[in-house]
Design a protein around this nucleic acid. Structure first.
Lengths: 206, 206
DNA sequence: GCTTTTACGCTACGAGCCGTAGCGTAACTC
DNA sequence: GAGTTACGCTACGGCTCGTAGCGTAAAAGC
């Protein structure tokens, strides 16, 4: 989805077409999965010419990243009163998202494609990863305000910690749900959260 | 890779062909990546007819799972003297494996395919996941013998804990390496291991 | 109004891969 | 030897790819 500079002449791109294409992409992911999804199929579902898709997206990967990114944007982190509750909440929400077939099949596929495509890697980072990292930052700030976690002076160290927490939470949940294919239920979440809480507070105690 | 019952009549399958095909598959993954790898290309590289591939593997996914599983089997866990050192060692080794292009591109791709294919899920589980879980079991037993971790009476709880540790380690490292695409260097590993150590010993301290 | 510019829909195309069928030959068991 | 299974090879219809070409639609500037 390239953004043609908005102060331009000529016929503008149809925003309705964008929405229809992304929705059609998600529908196709649900019905066909990543590997059987084709550009032609999506264009037909969206009621749009195939050439229009190629005018906006370089290929399947880019299209799917944008279609799935909209799903992940729905994640929120209301204040549940404690760090523990906040973590449990976001893990359950994330797992819920990963139960949706379009998210399951697409997420790993685009990550796989991105291993050989730096532009795609950047797109995933800006469209999905970095946007979700905000949840970790928010949860951490709240916990620090509550006195549950220590403030970290060094900004560099703080950002490293944020990245670590993000990778631990997102990575563990994805692995549990998609690789081990075991349920992310409340019991598991409680155990995982307990481990994480001890891990985060451990250094403070030392 | 179907195993025709070994006490059978007729011409046996060529073991050399198997090895050549799996090696050719890994070569093709390095050069082409998952999405551009084709069965025809692999058969040509292996010096084998395309039909032979289809006689042994149902498709690309199954073939690649077997080809990559051999890579993961190379992971070992020598006794480094402490739980901490054992964890750091295996994490670094695992990350090293994930730096290989054939592993990077294939692992996520087959997981993605497996979200719509239960047979493939089982194949991944038995060929890769379950086999690597042995490392966690081994490391845990050693740590318990050293007195670093408590023995868990309940067998059911013990297996839950094993699964959790496995998901945390494998998931976090994969996420760091492939999604965040940040280096898994010694500094990061030390920080991650510290978090994990506190997480594992936390409940014991309580 | 008119021109310019860009987006859109449609058709058609060569190229590549898919997965299978058919057939003759090779290798092993009894 | 006979029976059985694996292999190599060729050929095929069917699908998807990504692009080119062309006429039309919708905006901005005059």
């Amino acid at each position: 989805m390239r953004n043609p500079s908005p102060g331009r002449t000529g016929r503008p791109r149809s925003a309705a077409a964008d929405a229809a294409i992304l929705a059609a992409t998600r529908d196709a992911l649900v019905e066909l999965g990543w590997s059987k999804l084709t550009m032609g199929d999506v264009s037909a579902r969206a009621g749009v010419a195939k050439t229009t898709l190629y005018r906006r997206w370089a290929g399947k990967s880019e299209l799917v990243v944008d279609a799935v990114a909209e799903l992940f944007d729905s994640l929120e982190l209301p204040d549940r009163g404690s760090l523990e509750a906040d973590i449990e909440y976001v893990v359950l929400r994330f797992a819920e998202l990963l139960r949706r077939p379009e998210a399951r099949t697409a997420l790993m596929a685009v990550v796989s494609e991105s291993t050989r495509d730096e532009a795609l890697r950047d797109r995933i980072r800006s469209a999905i990863v970095d946007r979700q990292k905000r949840l970790v930052v928010l949860g951490r700030e709240r916990a620090q305000a509550r006195g549950e976690l220590p403030y970290e002076e060094d900004e560099f160290l703080a950002s490293r910690t944020t990245d670590l927490i993000f990778d631990v939470i997102a990575g563990t949940v994805v692995h549990r749900a998609l690789v081990s294919s075991e349920p992310v239920d409340e019991l598991w979440v409680a155990t995982f959260t307990a481990l994480l809480m001890h891990g985060l507070r451990g250094p403070a105690a030392a």
